[in-house]
Design a protein around this nucleic acid. Structure first.
Length: 819
RNA sequence: GCCGAAGUGGCGGAACUGGCAGACGCGCACGACUCAAAAUCGUGUACCUUUGGUAUGUGGGUUCGAUUCCCACCUUCGGCACCA
């Protein structure tokens, strides 16, 4: 063989060369083309932390292969990339290193953009957006104003979750775990009373539960459904002795007659009014210690119930019973109305409370399959549904009718109505930080809350800023920034000094790419009408209840305001898993198990890294990194190189049978690789290509090199490889004298005839056990196959003259002889 | 406690509609090449009491036939959780 004339595979050189050429030739520019079907591929944009992580490669390069595949199939594909550039790390770095967040952020972006380019992805960089640029955030501000105009943004003074380490408030979604810690830094959150801006996400609770016409993973649907937490029930208005209405929510209106007391949260507004002089001392002490308690202590489910009697009574509207009102922290101000009717016989929490404080337990539901219940002797609540008892005119109602019957009656009596309660809260967007989008509002002593006029947007962040982590927004401490004239009356007024949650920036970035920094509207309508909705969106599962709910809310609100169109912005969603360190732990600097993609690119080349990331795990599962595993992908890439470039022995001497087999395998692979690139089964894309290479090697040894079939196979192989390993595919394409560029070629045509099997191997089973294999022509009739199986030596030996009871023939697969 | 996902060789994983379990790769072993090593190439690689038998977390079921469908359980991971 003539190794000397075959160039060495130099990934570094090839990859740089082609990346440069593709950029010069603008082959990945995506423009409106009404003659072609559009395909918008979107991958969650990175935060410019400073360095690209292997996780970014894992998240981005397989979708890139998918995008490239779609492009070869003839779609007009847009695959944009940008940076989610506002956020705390920049500000923390600023404080630590005394460097301006903007400087830090934009330097990181420049570095990371180059790292991203080393992937060889088909990003259309003309469409890049950076959320921290005023040209971008003016529209984030504008969206805020639209939400405000449409009464979807409001300001409220209330206790909010506050991270003492990040010195800012957090949305409910950003508080995680049993100990209620900050999603970003892990510090347990505390409560603070602040005046904050909210979006009415709860207005869309019901619609957000509807996933029809969406191809989103079940897992995300479940997470979001649980997060929204819908419960059907009734709202019933009790009255205090003084006539104050006290609304409660219950999922069990059929137990209303069993309410023996009421419980209100320690923060409930009626606490003071209901407290009698003789109970004041106890109530005040209880409320005070409840406030002091952390949420961790208050919310642990196994904790013993505590509470105190308010001194007042309420009237149950269904039977005029006079029942005591208690104050207890097992009732949460944040869910329902902060007040409950307690039915100890049928709710375990109420039962424990009643037993501890000696309150009545009245049975009003009797399940058919249980002994008659007795409130005085029962040891736990019976939450099961069943026949209504002891409930005036409703006594005797079967369990399955009780709910509707009671609610209808409540509505007739005008004491209650059917309602639905959600766990979902409104989205708290105020952050007491500098590096975010300013909230474009002004507080005027005469006019109150006044929005900044749209033609004055953007409200820009000041550059000269002091870094004092005080818990107040740095904008508040700036000497001049907040002082403005009221746009309505001209009086001295003050700007809002809080900035927005960065999830606000990422709620509409998919629209930012359509026409970056468009001057007159958040996007160019022509681009919107052509490209939207996003055809496939990919990203990490950790955003299931944050970004992915916010962005759905944003789209629906935008649609209702006439800005956006359609039910959802992202039709299809796929989540990648996590690449763990070699030690099977999450990668972190402190563990020292971080895999650096830059080093891998230097060592193996981007194509090998791409191939390995697609091959080594099920993409949606993720797996621990394996540094010797990547050698396999590297070998594959180098074997492709040498197999295609080195001439074979005995060229053109292969038998017709060899060449037929080669084409068969080639087109069978084309079928599976195309299917798998379409359905995100990247690992089998690579294994399919590996198998085919093994077949090519065999054919080459058998003298196929130089034949028309060989050349056809190489051509098809390179096209199939192009989405996965774009550089080596382009280089080999060029070396073999084919016209530039392989990435503007179309996906190979399927040849069904070539892929057809001439022969099929039937598995012969006796009683389901494998006994023989027989190879028959593909067009053998089932009858002939059966005859062949029954005359197989192995079968005859087992049958030993007996007659089979039954013979099952699965065409082209299997024959099972049942004795 | 509730909701969800996943359990297949030493490892990552494959198996399209219920039809040959373990494709492909890693690792390992042996061999070729080499003075030697690396690289490369080739062969082998689930287990056992081996004319056969057992194996896809465990135990059942449906079926001629189950990794695949059904029931119960176990383990791991993720989410929610005094949510009325």
């Amino acid at each position: 063989m003539s190794e000397t004339i075959v160039p060495i595979y130099d990934a570094q050189k090839i990859e740089k060369k082609w990346q440069q050429k593709w950029a010069e030739d603008k082959i990945y520019d995506s423009n409106i083309d009404h003659n072609r079907q559009k395909y918008y591929v979107l991958t969650m944009l990175p935060y410019p932390s400073g360095n690209l992580h292997i996780g970014h490669w894992y998240a981005m390069t397989p979708p890139d292969a998918h995008a490239r595949f779609k492009r070869m199939q003839g779609y007009n594909v847009m695959f944009p990339m940008g940076f989610d550039a506002f956020g705390l790390p920049a500000e923390n770095a600023a404080i630590k290193n005394n460097i301006h967040p903007s400087k830090w952020t934009f330097a990181n972006i420049d570095h990371m953009r180059n790292q991203l380019k080393s992937m060889g992805a088909m990003f259309d960089w003309r469409r890049e957006i950076i959320s921290a640029k005023p040209e971008y955030y003016r529209w984030t501000e504008w969206f805020f104003l639209q939400l405000y105009k449409h009464n979807l943004a409001y300001r409220k003074f209330s206790p909010v979750d506050w991270c003492p380490h990040c010195n800012t408030t957090l949305a409910r979604e950003q508080v995680w775990g049993d100990d209620r810690h900050c999603e970003r830094c892990g510090t347990p959150v505390i409560k603070k009373d602040l005046n904050q801006w909210y979006f009415r996400t709860t207005n869309y609770a019901e619609e957000l539960l509807d996933f029809s016409e969406m191809d989103w993973p079940e897992r995300v649907q479940t997470l979001q459904t649980n997060w929204i937490g819908r419960s059907e029930g009734a709202s019933v208005t009790f009255k205090t002795e003084y006539g104050d209405p006290m609304e409660v929510f219950t999922t069990r209106p059929d137990t209303l007659w069993g309410a023996t007391f009421m419980v209100i949260a320690p923060e409930h507004p009626l606490v003071a009014k209901l407290t009698k002089p003789e109970t004041a001392a106890a109530v005040n002490a209880y409320v005070e210690q409840a406030t002091r308690q952390t949420d961790i202590q208050r919310e642990s489910a196994d904790r013993e119930k505590t509470g105190v009697f308010s001194g007042s009574y309420a009237i149950n509207p269904v039977n005029q019973a006079r029942i005591p009102i208690w104050i207890a922290d097992y009732v949460l101000m944040g869910y329902g109305t902060g007040a409950i009717m307690a039915v100890p016989a049928h709710d375990q929490r109420d039962f424990e409370f009643a037993r501890k404080f000696g309150l009545d337990v009245i049975v009003v539901v009797q399940p058919d399959d249980m002994e008659p219940l007795d409130g005085n002797t029962m040891t736990e609540a019976v939450p099961a549904h069943g026949k209504v008892v002891n409930s005036d005119h409703l006594t005797g109602t079967p369990g399955d009718e009780a709910f509707n019957k009671v609610v209808t009656w409540l509505e007739e009596q005008k004491i209650g109505h059917r309602t639905i309660n959600y766990r979902l809260r409104d989205w708290l967007i105020s952050r007491q930080r500098y590096w975010g989008t300013p909230i474009p509002m002004i507080y005027c002593p005469h006019c109150g809350v006044v929005p900044v006029p749209e033609n004055e947007l953007p409200v820009k962040l000041p550059d000269d800023i002091e870094w004092k982590p005080t818990g107040e927004s740095p904008l508040k401490l700036h000497p001049t920034w907040k002082h403005v004239k009221c746009p309505v009356c001209g009086a001295d007024a003050e700007r809002e000094t809080d900035t927005m949650d960065t999830f606000m920036c990422s709620s509409w970035y998919h629209l930012g790419y359509l026409s970056p920094y468009f001057p007159t509207w958040p996007f160019d309508q022509k681009e919107y009408d052509y490209w939207m909705p996003v055809d496939i969106y990919t990203g990490g599962i950790e955003h299931a209840t944050m970004h992915l709910i916010y962005t759905r809310f944003f789209h629906k609100a935008g649609r209702d305001m006439g800005i956006m169109k359609g039910k959802e912005a992202m039709v299809k969603l796929r989540n990648q898993g996590i690449v763990l360190g070699e030690d099977n732990e999450k990668m972190s600097k402190s563990r020292g198990n971080v895999v650096d993609p830059d080093k891998l690119v230097v060592q193996y080349g981007a194509d090998t890294v791409r191939a390995y990331l697609m091959f080594f795990a099920r993409w949606e599962m993720g797996a621990p990194w394996n540094s010797s595993g990547i050698e396999g992908s590297s070998r594959w890439v180098r074997r492709v190189w040498s197999t295609f470039l080195e001439p074979g022995d005995k060229p053109k001497s292969a038998s017709a049978e060899t060449l037929r087999a080669l084409r068969r395998k080639l087109y069978q692979t084309l079928r599976s690789v195309g299917r798998d690139l379409d359905t995100f089964q990247f690992n089998t894309v690579i294994s399919g290509l590996m198998e085919l290479l093994n077949e090519l090697t065999k054919a080459k040894q058998a003298g196929a090199w130089g034949t028309a079939e060989w050349n056809e196979a190489v051509d098809v192989y390179l096209r199939m490889m192009a989405p996965v390993t774009p550089h080596i595919a382009e280089e080999l394409w060029a070396q073999l004298g084919k016209p530039y560029s392989i990435h503007t070629q179309s996906w190979p045509e399927m040849d069904e005839e070539a892929a057809r099997e001439d022969e099929v191997t039937y598995v012969v089973q006796v009683n389901g056990k494998l006994r023989d294999r027989i190879t028959l022509p593909a067009d053998t009739s089932t009858e002939d196959a059966k005859t062949a199986a029954l005359s197989s030596k192995a079968v005859l030996g087992i049958l030993d003259g007996k007659k089979p009871q039954k013979v099952v023939v699965v065409p082209k697969k299997l024959i099972n002889i049942v004795l």
